[in-house]
Nucleic acid binder design. Structure first.
Length: 163
DNA sequence: AAAGTGATCATG
DNA sequence: ATGATCACTTTG
């Protein structure tokens, strides 16, 4: 069963330690083990972009598990998310850190990811690999940068870091 | 501590 | 058409 078929919080936890494989148009292959993730879990989660329903931007969150959601934040940083769960149920996992790049904006710079991958499926350009590595420990904490969300959603322990 | 940066979305 | 709002990073 695919990791991304699980509910976002479970998928986020399971993705820590997996390897992101990025193949560039020129043939270069970049590999990076995931060290930090966050879950965004459906319309009921006020921190999730889709909490205000479908828009042109959030439409991709309603697509099937394995769809890639990339968007620009603060005018500068691309954010990489993997859509999880059933179609028409907007859930995603934000990749906040990989080995060699800590912070979501740095992850995309490191892997040369931009909006050209938005609304495409995990495939040749970007894929996941499980090499059997298991993190010694996975820490949980509240998500960051979501001060606009309801207090109970801010409190959810949906941030996962390799320890 | 605060600026920099631009797409997106809700207003008008 | 205009303005507020950001799943952040860097610099001082």
């Amino acid at each position: 069963m695919n990791i991304l078929d699980m509910p976002a919080p479970e998928a986020a936890r399971a993705l820590v330690g997996k390897v992101l494989v990025r193949r560039l148009p020129d043939g270069t292959v970049l590999r990076a083990r995931i060290t930090e993730t966050e879950a965004y879990f459906g319309e009921a989660d006020t921190a999730c972009h889709a909490s205000h329903g479908r828009t042109k931007r959030t439409e991709v969150l309603y697509h099937p598990a394995g769809t890639i959601y990339v968007y620009l934040c603060y005018g500068i940083h691309w954010m990489l998310n993997l859509v999880t769960g059933p179609a028409d149920d907007p859930q995603a996992v934000l990749i906040r850190g990989v080995e060699g790049a800590s912070g979501p904006g740095r992850v995309t710079r490191f892997l040369h990811i931009d909006k050209s991958l938005n609304d495409t499926m995990l495939a040749d350009a970007l894929s996941l690999e499980d090499d059997g590595f298991v993190p010694a420990r996975i820490d949980v904490s509240p998500r960051v940068g979501i001060g606009y969300a309801a207090p109970e959603d801010q409190a959810r322990l949906w941030r996962f870091t390799a320890g």
